[in-house]
Design a protein around this nucleic acid. Sequence first.
DNA 1: TCATTCCATAACCAAGTGGTTCTATAACAA
DNA 2: TTGTTATAGAACCACTTGGTTATGGAATGA
Lengths: 124, 124
Amino acid sequence: MTPASRLDAAFSALADPTRRAILARLALGEASVLELAEPFSMSQPAISKHLKVLEQAGLISRGRDAQRRPCRIEGKAFAEVEEWLENYRRFWEGQFRQLDALLVELKAARKKSKSGNARQPKKA
Amino acid sequence: MTPASRLDAAFSALADPTRRAILARLALGEASVLELAEPFSMSQPAISKHLKVLEQAGLISRGRDAQRRPCRIEGKAFAEVEEWLENYRRFWEGQFRQLDALLVELKAARKKSKSGNARQPKKA
DNA sequence: TCATTCCATAACCAAGTGGTTCTATAACAA
DNA sequence: TTGTTATAGAACCACTTGGTTATGGAATGA
């Protein structure tokens, strides 16, 4: 799977509130399918489908304990999401608007210097 | 909108590679709809739809500059996603498996002490 | 062996998504 | 006014998604 399609899978898996609730439960420790299904007014196959989505996104993995298939969180996929978000951190940490404007100016300046007539950045 | 439905909207908006590419472009600075559409082999209305999804998720906002509707990134929605992810950080930073096991033990111990018949944890 | 428990798969359905083309509208330009 | 440019909306389509019920299968226990 390409990095892009892994992000597709992770983000779309995380877009469902039932699946996020399942992850919240798993953050407390491993759980079986029936244990995970219990809080929801939803059939067991529906939960199994959600778990399949989470597993294919790499957000959980499943073991074997007799008939039970205990689920646990897998950190790696979360880390990839976090890493992607990292690229946008500056947009919510303080001075983002100014930095944005700066980048626009830099780009404009580069374009102008290519075409040979340098221009002053407009007033801040 | 509830915090949960805001996360729904943000995650599902981020699940599409075209929309993530649009955000990557906007990270370089504001851009109009046609500018954003240019790199894609896709109709302009398709891009407008994607922008609407991003806007409703709060990931971008749109201004007005004559006929153009310049788009820019809005950090707040990103921050909410980041904040949610924060709850799972321990799963990809080092000692997560041990901590997970610890939590399971704590839970089991609490349950047993309630019901009054303490049991040994089964072998690791 | 036979029943039970836990889970997955199959088949189905309504609603949502991501694209299309065609058309409408808003702001500017002549 | 008339045309042009940038964008949005409507109607449509194929495909996906999230749920259902019914069934199948693997592991355990009697």
